[in-house]
Write a protein that binds this DNA or RNA. Structure first.
Lengths: 339, 339
DNA sequence: CTGAAAGCGCTTACAG
DNA sequence: CTGAAAGCGCTTACAG
């Protein structure tokens, strides 16, 4: 099963390696008849260049690496679509890696992208000691990098971010406006920037309304359905129950719903619920869920645009794009309390 | 920004290239003191081998390519998790590509995987003239291939499949048992094997119950929320409405729900609904949805296992694993009609 | 046990 | 306009 090489083509077409290579790269200095003969031979032998060899020489590829942290979170898959749609418009291909919030996997995938000579890297990073350094190194090595969704403290790397603080503030404020007093937060781990920002927004909204922060109402959990359901169960079985929950993302929202059902609490009567991420099913849930919509697809698009911009001009000034969220009010918080 | 090469290491450590290479590959014939010196130098210079060059020579990688057709469909992302978990156990990395059901993109990604010298390929293929051939070619070229979810007619390629026919049959049968007479199907395009099988299961269940097939109740749509919502709207605004709908996948189910709400039809009173794919939110919807659960995670695991098996023994007999579904009955079909 | 050399499949100055 | 040759960074027989 020997592969056809450029040498085979050259021999079959009766020309030199150089000529074949030139034809393949659209070099115009080749005599038309030779060009045709080469093209015909390439077809006939079904020759496919060996990219390893190509890249060993010239170091380029048309692959964009996209590293996300949870493939099962629709937030990220929507970003993927945004990236892909812009990338395809530029004839780039997108390759995806899922780190699962695991610094080890992240490191492996960053290495792979470097070694595969990706044309660029878009990453929703897990913060970890060496992450920033390795990204900066990658960038210095000629692979443009764009951060998406999570700022790991670099004003040296282009980034596309969401105003998580403001989003969480608006949701919490809404719960307060609905007359809730004991507002809990079930949140992802605050070692992850987005969740830290959401916590801050929540805390600030409470403070601004003169509601003291009760740490018994602050729950941190892995941002997944099962884990957050269990964490919420513990919260709801404890002594002083909350009369409202702000959920840190869409998976946590589902976890909270399941936990509430389990202990027979009715939403919004017994407890209000607002959550981050608006999903296609948010409006179809029982009850429909008030949620903070993020511009996920647009995040992906913008990240790809920034990356391509930097691929074209590696000296471009660093740019951070910040996008706002939108609160979508539905049934899960009850009505507003009239003043 | 010149990269450190093996030559730099050799020079710095005062040995030959060969020796460095041997140390890096754990070749035991190297004197311990030299070995240590080399290792120390590698560390100090932060040397990372160039994979392009490595693979140009020895053709191996530890990357499994995983090609799916819709990154936004939770069915596929759950498969991804299954593949990853098994792959990591074998120290393989997984790289994902999203074809979007587009034969062109699929072709590009298959090529990329071939050119990147992936150690193996798992694919949920879009059926298209050349797909099977290119996969067979890849396999002959030494890259093991496993089909997942979709059989494109190859008993020459290992495959992990779901019994879509039986799943669709059981859901349709259930709707019949609930006393429904005018049962529609809103399905994905039957050019895709899974949807074709589901259609067959639906049709057979009707036939077995002596209910004539009414082609006005057979709707084909892109298997996405918006498209299926629109298609369902047209169905529900037409003359003789259905009294039940069988939805071809989880995204279509959401589309049907939205369409029903739009025309003020109440489920299950005005119309029953059962759908393929059980999702975390299926139980929280309004009403909770009767659905056909697929072993998604297990599909991914088994696919990875088959792939690794073949990587170890390229002469293994072809194997097809068929998995069954499970009908989960909830509120959306109303109660069973007692006989 | 170690080094010099060939070669993987390409691209690209360099001559002509 | 075209070819011969060098070289990308490795690995691996082949000598010693």
């Amino acid at each position: 099963m020997k592969r056809i090489t450029i040498r085979d083509v050259a021999r079959a077409a009766g020309v030199s390696l150089s000529t074949v290579s030139r034809v393949l790269h659209g070099n115009p200095t080749v005599r038309p008849d030779l060009q045709e003969r080469v093209l015909e031979t390439v077809q006939r032998l079904n020759y496919q260049p060996n990219r390893m060899a190509q890249r060993l020489r010239s170091n380029a590829s048309n692959i964009i690496g996209l590293v996300i942290s949870d493939i099962e979170n629709p937030f990220f898959t929507s970003i993927v679509r945004g990236v892909e749609d812009v990338a395809y418009g530029q004839f780039m291909n997108v390759i995806l890696c899922n780190t699962d919030e695991d610094p080890l996997k992240q490191r492996r995938y960053i290495d792979i992208m470097a070694e595969e000579r990706a044309a660029g890297l878009i990453i929703a990073p897990v913060h970890e000691e060496r992450t920033l350094d390795s990204l900066l190194e990658l960038q210095k090595g000629g692979v443009p990098v764009v951060l998406v969704d999570r700022n790991i403290g670099a004003d040296q790397i282009d980034a596309v971010l969401v105003d998580n603080f403001a989003g969480a503030y608006s949701a919490t404020r809404h719960l307060i406006d609905c007359g809730r007093k004991r507002i809990a937060i079930v949140n992802g781990e605050t070692r992850i920037e987005t969740f830290a920002d959401r916590y801050e927004g929540y805390a600030r909204a409470l403070a601004d309304a003169g509601i003291p922060l009760d740490m018994k109402l602050v729950v941190e959990t892995a941002p997944r359905i099962n884990e957050s359901q269990q964490a919420t169960s513990r919260l709801l079985e404890a002594d002083h129950k909350p009369d409202a929950i702000f959920a840190g993302n869409n998976l946590i929202t589902l976890g909270v719903l399941k936990a509430a059902k389990q202990v027979n609490m009715t939403i919004p009567q017994d407890m209000a619920l607002a959550g981050f991420d608006d999903m296609p099913w948010s409006s179809e849930l029982c009850p429909s869920i008030t949620s903070v919509a993020q511009p996920t697809y647009e995040l992906g698009q913008e990240a790809a645009r920034l990356l391509i911009r930097r691929m074209k001009d590696n000296n471009a000034f660093q740019q951070t794009t910040m996008m706002q969220t939108r609160l979508i009010v539905r049934e899960s918080c009850g009505g507003l309390k009239s003043k």
